[in-house]
């Protein structure tokens, strides 16, 4: 079970990173096309007019993938921003109660959001919603990716909630923190 969950989080993160690579790749390709056309013009040739169709829209969709698929991994690495000032200065027992409270709020919100995000994807499918640019892209695809990212996020929050309830430290508390100036707080 543990291994399966960890693989899930890592897989989602890898897909998110792939989305970023794809954005960079497509944009660089578009710029290369402009350079090719510019060079042809300089030599008196007709421009080819190469373009990456619907570049802006596709990159927007890829960004949705990058942002949502990484939610779980970002949580577990402790990279989502919170102010844990009070938590660190209260007795351990009380801090644990607050930790559970935070996770409860987050998991209910994430579940709520997942449900309606799924509803939105289904609606786009039912009404055959498409993007408006040169290539009509069915919106259901990026919206499914957004929903899947939220599903994995909800699972990760549940995972940590169970951990916190059983008295252990949640994943983000154990993560190696980024290099702080004097060891952070």
């Amino acid at each position: 079970m543990r291994t399966a969950l960890d693989v899930l989080y890592r897989l989602a993160q890898a897909l998110a990173a792939t989305c970023l690579v794809a954005i960079a790749g497509l944009v660089v390709l578009q710029v290369l096309f402009r350079i090719v056309d510019g060079a042809r013009k300089a030599f008196g040739l007709d421009p080819v007019g190469l373009l990456v169709p619907s570049l802006a829209e596709i990159c927007g969709f890829l960004l949705v993938g990058a942002s949502f698929l990484a939610l779980a991994a970002t949580l577990r690495r402790g990279d989502h921003i919170r102010v844990s000032l009070m938590l660190q200065h209260m007795p351990a027992g009380l801090a644990r109660i607050f930790e559970v409270w935070c996770l409860l709020v987050a998991v209910s919100l994430a579940a709520y959001f997942t449900w309606y995000s799924g509803g939105q994807a289904y609606d786009s499918y039912k009404y055959n919603e498409v993007s408006i640019g040169i290539i009509p892209i069915p919106l259901v695809w990026p919206q499914i990716v957004m929903t899947l990212g939220l599903v994995v996020f909800t699972i990760a929050l549940l995972d940590d909630l169970v951990t916190a309830l059983s008295g252990r430290k949640p994943s983000y508390e154990l993560a190696v923190k980024g290099e702080a100036w004097e060891g952070g707080e």
């Binding site: 829209e57 969709f61 990058a66 309606y116 995000s117 939105q120 919206q143």
Partner: peptide, 21 residues
Amino acid sequence: GPVLATTVWGAANSWDLTALP
């Protein structure tokens, strides 16, 4: 719920924002 989904979709799906990552 639907307002939440629609708004976040509209905000996250943004070309201008791609410069940030």
